[in-house]
Amino acid sequence: MSPALVVLIIGILVPFIILISLSMWTRDGFGFDMTPTFENYQRVGTEPIFSTLLARSFWISGIATFFTVLLCYPMAYYVAFHVHRNKMLWIVLMTLPFWTSYLLRVFAWRVILGYEGVINSAFLSMGWIQAPLEFLLYSQTAVIITLAHAWAAFAILPLYVSLEKIDKSLLEAATDLGDGPVRRFLRITLPLSLPGVISACFLIFIPTTGDYITPALLGGPDGVMIGNLIQLQFGPVNNWPMGAALSIVLMLWIGALALVFLFITRKAKDRLA
């Protein structure tokens, strides 16, 4: 473990400590004023653009996470309960696209949703619409669709693992005791697969809140997210301390939301069981 640990400490712990200290400095021309101050955090707390973008990022990621898990659940359920031969093949088929370039998968949606993209040009040539649909590209919807598609594998794997683990004799017992398919699902399958649902939600929600490729390629002005703002601070705006403060605030929010979510699901699980 030790060499790997050294790399992880250099690569994770040290950068974060430096990031925290940087967030308490201020920009001073091309350098930094190193007197510790909470000025950046105050600005994040008071200026509306930051809270708007934070809220929007959580909203977009939240919706995308919800739909991804909802749509992937039946798929994982199907493979866990109804596929008996070539399970491996199904798992490979479901996860293969995930290993291809994220940039290219996002780019593919731009090809599809674009003003002269696949959908618009196909509908136009079939005469279904008179003018290209403009809301397809550069909207929050476009970002949500793309995120849901790009992160599907992160939902399918944990869902599948938790569903696969369920002892099938419990389902038989429920049926023998008179539960119909719906009650059986609600009282046995769903509560027992909840750990998979929870990890799927985390695995999608957390990374997508900071995503900036998808909003940059498909979001337009309405779809800008906090990741784009962070990237701007380190790029054209050149205010690194502000960018560092934004990153820390984003992390803290994610941590807080994760705790709230865990608490709610625990309550829900108690209720179901």
Binding site: I12, P15, I18, L203, I206, P207, G210, G227, I230, M251
Partner: peptide, 27 residues
């Protein structure tokens, strides 16, 4: 705890890791 720590890059938004490392190498 160590394993969780090692798995952090899987869940922390890439942009945060990117800027954290950028700050490290530039410092």
């Amino acid at each position: 705890a160590l394993i969780t720590f090692a798995m952090l890059p899987l869940v922390v938004p890439g942009v945060i890791f990117g800027v954290a490392l950028l700050v490290l190498v530039s410092r």
